[in-house]
Computed example of a mutant assay.
Amino acid sequence: MELFSSIVSIRWSDLDPNYHVRHSAYYDWGAQQRVEVLNNLGLSMRVMQENNFGPILFREECVFRKEIHMGDHITISLSMKSVNEDGSRWTMQHLLTNQKGDLCATITIDGAWIDTIKRKLANPTPGVVIETMKKFPQLA
């Protein structure tokens, strides 16, 4: 299965005083892409809100390999690195590549689902969650 990919538009506000992309912009891009992918797979913010659950991150790590500058064309790809049997805990990975195909950064996140009322880890709708998580391409 192919990775979920999208093109990142680099904005002036994404730059730091050294004229390359500031570190926190990478995390913003990853978060936005994850929300969009979940939404496209049927696990929308509305579904999560109606069922009182949402994603929570334990770890988010970015390894920076090449600078990204204004004018670069960046593709960000998302895949599932690992997921437990019921879909309640998972690790996802984003690969950010430039127009030459060079790997610029890797973002790895470990997460789970939280019950937004009880404020505890939960898998309130295991059928929906696991079916959605199975739709992700698996990282080899």
Rank of each mutant, 00 (worst) to 15 (best):
P124D: 10
V8C: 10
F58T: 10
S24I: 04
C104N: 04
M48D: 02
G54K: 08
S44H: 01
L121E: 06
D110A: 05
E36P: 02
G127E: 12
E61I: 13
S24H: 04
W113M: 12
M1E: 10
Q138I: 15
V128D: 01
G42I: 02
H23T: 03
K100C: 10
T97K: 14
L96E: 02
I130L: 12
I56G: 14
N18H: 03
I68N: 02
V21N: 01
H69K: 11
T91E: 12
S5M: 09
I76G: 03
K134C: 10
R11N: 06
D16E: 10
K134V: 09
I76M: 14
E67G: 02
V21I: 10
S82M: 06
E60D: 14
H73V: 07
L139I: 08
Q33A: 12
K118H: 05
Q49H: 11
L38Q: 12
R34M: 14
V8L: 12
S82D: 09
Q93M: 13
A31C: 09
S13Y: 03
H20T: 06
W29I: 06
Q99N: 04
H20N: 13
L139G: 02
S5D: 04
T125Q: 13
E2I: 11
I114E: 03
K120Y: 08
S24Y: 04
L41R: 10
L103R: 10
E85F: 12
Q99K: 02
R89V: 00
E36C: 06
K135D: 05
R119A: 13
S9I: 14
W12M: 04
N40K: 11
Y27I: 12
E50N: 10
L41T: 05
V35I: 15
E67S: 10
V129W: 03
G42N: 04
G127K: 05
I74L: 01
A31I: 12
M48H: 05
L38H: 14
A112M: 12
E2G: 11
I56M: 15
T116I: 04
T132E: 08
S88C: 05
G54N: 08
I74E: 01
I107M: 09
V21F: 01
H94R: 06
P124H: 11
F53W: 11
R11M: 03
H94N: 15
Q33C: 08
K118E: 13
G87Q: 05
H94Q: 13
A105Y: 02
F4A: 09
D14F: 00
L121C: 03
F136M: 15
V8D: 01
A140T: 13
D16I: 08
G87K: 06
K134F: 02
F58L: 13
I107K: 01
P124K: 14
W90V: 05
G30T: 09
A31H: 11
I76P: 00
T97A: 07
I114T: 07
F53C: 03
C62E: 09
S6K: 14
L78I: 14
T106Y: 04
M133R: 04
V35Y: 04
S5V: 08
T116M: 05
G111N: 05
